[in-house]
Amino acid sequence: MQNLVDGILTGSYISLAAIGLTLVMHILRFANFSHAELLSVGAYAALVFDKAFAAVFPIAATKLAPLSLTLALLAAIVVSMAFTGATAILIDRLVFRRVRDKGNELSMVFASFGMALVMRNLIALGFGLHSQLYSRDIAFAVILSRDPLILVKPDQVFVLGAALVLMAALHLVLTRTTFGFALRAVAENPALAQVNGVDLGRMIAATWVIAGMLAAAAGVFYGLSYQLIPIMGRDLVLPVFAATIVGGIGSVYGAVLGGFIVGIASNLALLVLPSGYSPAVPFLLILAVLILRPNGLFGEARA
């Protein structure tokens, strides 16, 4: 049971990250290996903004009991989401768009492979290889149930709640606003979207902003649940890819479900496999999906 609860919590940030990745993979048509590094960018940016806000407004640095979260960190999350969205656009302008304009779709994967290495290690050079925490205070777990024993930290509940709020917000944007229709239209048929007056360049930028914002939130939530470490992107890239494939590339709802499936499966796997094998679990899920349902739970075949 504890593993199931942990799995749901893990799933909440994997889902957030996978939504952005699935959108990018669908609209820009490439497997972005540097997507998980946007989580690191967001997590570390929040760390910096958190310290800055706490220094400027000491009052904001008090904990919102029972969370270890402070007002400063809450504000830092919001600012970091904007910052990471902007970073995602900047990287697109500097690298991906230029590769795209040369007309070589396959090279985008390759470029993202290189970018992942650059981003990850620049963060290591800037922040050090050691791990860091948003708060040094020990957050006590709350006992949800004694038999079976289930422990949950208040921060984890916040993470799950915040992730669900963000997903609901995205859902509303996609189903209630013409901007959302335009984004879905581009995902389905870019040429037809253009004919209907949708500016493709702007929608690509919007895709990056959404991907960056959700990745930043996911990165902070990962940091709150565990710790910040520059190689977090390396450990997250495969679970996030697995979530998109399980859900079906291009499906936002598939990515949400895929994220929770990956999170739960990884935690349940601990019951049967030694923890050393955990990194391989997402790959096993990918294999299972490729064998059983190659286009994922919600995906459509597309060349």
Binding site: T178, A182, N196, G197
Partner: peptide
């Protein structure tokens, strides 16, 4: 949604 997109 198709029509609203076209009308936006």
């Amino acid at each position: 949604q198709n029509l609203e997109l076209a009308l936006r």
